[in-house]
Simulated scan of single mutants.
Amino acid sequence: MEPLQRSRLWWGLGYLLIAFIVVVSLVPAPDLPDLGIDWLDKLLHFAAYLVLMLWFVQINPPDRYGFWMRMFIKMGLALEIVQGMIGYRMFDLWDMGANVLGVLAGWGLGRAGVNRILVKVEEVWLR
């Protein structure tokens, strides 16, 4: 894996992404528009955790993917449990499943070689 030239930036943005997901998971839920998609909430959960894991496969060597996969699965499970405890959000096993599937999809994409996006961004940016 090629080292990133702006790794501190990418790590900082990754931690902001984690913070964003934590905050959005714990503030009162917004009213989602009715787009005729019954599972829109689950798609959003899946997409958030897919992006999160895919981000971290960009900034880590492959031998660290498993660590981040386990951490993000635990984070998704813990946030769902906390949502069930805070009163204005609710615990949902389907959300939990969507979080886990998103992490696994990001991990799988990283293992399949989709782990050079930020390298390409830097190549264009730093020309």
Rank of each mutant, 00 (worst) to 15 (best):
D63W: 12
M90R: 08
D34M: 09
G84W: 07
A47K: 01
N99P: 05
F67C: 03
V27F: 14
W10V: 08
W11E: 11
D92I: 05
M90G: 11
I37E: 04
I86Y: 04
V114N: 04
L9F: 15
F46S: 00
G97A: 14
L93S: 09
L77G: 13
Y15R: 08
L32G: 05
K42M: 05
W39G: 01
G36L: 03
L118G: 07
R116T: 12
G87L: 11
W125R: 12
R111W: 06
M90H: 14
L13D: 02
A98N: 02
L54G: 14
M96R: 00
I73P: 03
V23M: 06
M69E: 08
Q58L: 10
F46C: 02
D63Q: 13
R127E: 12
A29K: 13
V121N: 01
W11P: 00
M75N: 05
L118N: 01
V23T: 11
N60P: 00
N60Q: 15
Y65N: 09
L35A: 03
D31T: 14
Q58W: 07
D34L: 05
P3T: 07
D41R: 08
F56Q: 03
A98E: 04
M75K: 06
G108K: 09
L4F: 04
P28D: 10
Q83E: 12
M1W: 09
L77S: 03
I37V: 14
A29N: 14
A105S: 12
A29D: 15
V27D: 10
W10G: 05
L40M: 13
V82H: 04
D38Y: 06
L32Q: 10
M90W: 05
I81F: 15
F91H: 07
S25N: 10
L79I: 06
V82W: 01
A19I: 11
I21H: 08
L52T: 05
P33F: 02
Q83Y: 09
L43V: 08
L50K: 00
P30E: 10
L79D: 03
E2R: 14
R6M: 06
G102I: 05
G66H: 04
K42A: 08
I37G: 09
G12I: 04
